[in-house]
Write a protein that binds this DNA or RNA. Structure first.
Lengths: 250, 250
DNA sequence: CCTTGCATACTTGTATGGAAGTATGCAAGG
DNA sequence: CCTTGCATACTTCCATACAAGTATGCAAGG
């Protein structure tokens, strides 16, 4: 199995240091070291900088992030709960592979909750979709200048805003927890500009459905939108076979 | 603020030991100490043996559970993520109070996902509701002999089984995470036998709706069922005012 | 050549000691 | 009597040392 140090050695030609893979966030704010590590490592996993199946080591990671093993372990515990890491006692800690059954569950949760939120967002007589239009514009501009990260942020913000309009901003948290698995699959298939345009198109139709309170149309659009990650899944499984888990959860 | 030791002193007349509040789970299986503590403390909180607002202490808890502070802290981190604990740095760790906004969010997530699962469970032509009927019988018998714990288990199992029938057993996990807040509110209002009978009645109607695939009827019943916890909420807020949070999340 | 057993170097899990920060009570001064 | 400042006793947070278990490579024996 490929180790963390090996991977870094390949990419940066430095045997021990791993600068670049995980940005070393320094002690800003009053944030706990545990939180910084959770954010840093969690983002690195979701952005596939730490590829699925990679074997990590607590002490190695701790050194590279300049924290001790205690706060690192607390971050690991949370990442295990989130389904992004898997700990094999006395063996190692590895980046969880993408399990299509988990992806499907996340898709169901997301689609179902977003449709529920959409219906509530359509209910108020005086609803204000100007924020949604702003976010659509942001996405368009970010796409035109090839800024994927900003597009991602605006994408997230759009979906979160719909939950806010529905009066359930907290439910978006529940969706995000499940979305972790979807994120990695999306990241695999999203360098394609055409796909981004499709997503923006989806967003426009969903926002339009809210503006005009067309329930049936909106439900359909959200369903289509939520299932897009699954479209490229079979191809991605062929292209990156060892990113995907074949066996049931250990 | 009432401390953990004080509470125990009141109930058991022992100043330091806290036997009874949290069962000391001994090192069975190959389970990690961290996992045992998470289960033990989490259950104690959900069953209100550790009342909302209670101020805890890492070292105190560690002594009483016969583990060191490290695995205890890892359990605390998970319980914070679950929304059952709240850590105030350099001050203390306290049992999170019940916030009605969280309850409402959990209700929305649960109701929406259960309706979604219900619709899928109705779809297959050859669906087998015998397991559901067994669980209904278990609930009836448990209620007749006043066995609340068994009723709770069968209740959970029934809802989980519906998600299984829908082909999304994993989505039940997402519901359970949100349900933690609902559990405590239910626990407050459930010593009432009449309420238990109402719940069993709800369950029967929901199972019937699945058996006959009456979509509209089932959706309505699940919605009514999911909102029952809210019925007694105002009364409970009057009866146990310091169990509930008034301010927004810190 | 192949198999088996063991020494060794890892891994995660747990315990403990110290550092930094906060609430509290008490004493001194107005 | 009321307010202010400080000493003290907590708290969580972090670093480190040790314990227990697993994989690996090498050597010895069949």
């Amino acid at each position: 199995m490929q180790s963390f140090a090996d991977l870094n050695a390949e990419q940066f030609n430095v045997p021990t240091a791993a600068r670049g893979l995980i940005p070393v966030v320094r002690a800003r704010d009053g944030l706990r070291a545990s939180d910084r590590v959770f954010e840093s490592v969690g983002t690195a996993i979701r952005e596939l900088r730490l590829p699925p199946g990679l074997l990590l080591s607590e002490s190695e990671l701790a050194q590279q992030l300049h924290v001790s093993r205690t706060p690192l372990r607390e971050a690991i515990v949370r990442l295990v709960d989130a389904g992004l890491l898997q700990v094999l006692p006395q063996v190692g800690t590895l980046v969880a592979k993408i399990r299509m059954s988990d992806v499907e569950e996340a898709r169901f949760v997301r689609e179902t909750l977003e449709i529920g939120a959409f219906e509530l967002a359509c209910a108020p007589a005086h609803r204000d979709v100007s924020v949604l239009h702003d976010l659509l514009d942001q996405q368009q501009r970010a796409h035109e200048r090839g800024d994927l990260e900003t597009f991602f942020s605006a994408d997230e913000a759009l979906h979160a805003e719909i939950f806010s309009m529905a009066g359930h901003p907290g439910a978006w948290m529940a969706v995000q927890r499940m979305k972790f698995q979807l994120d990695r699959l999306r990241r695999l298939s999203l360098p394609d500009p055409a796909t981004v345009e499709t997503l923006i198109h989806d967003h426009r139709r969903i926002v339009d459905a809210i503006a005009t309170a067309e329930l049936a149309q909106g439900r359909h659009q959200i369903s289509v939108h939520a299932r897009r990650v699954l479209e490229h899944a079979p191809l991605m499984q062929l292209k990156f076979p060892d990113y995907f888990a074949t066996e049931p959860r250990a």
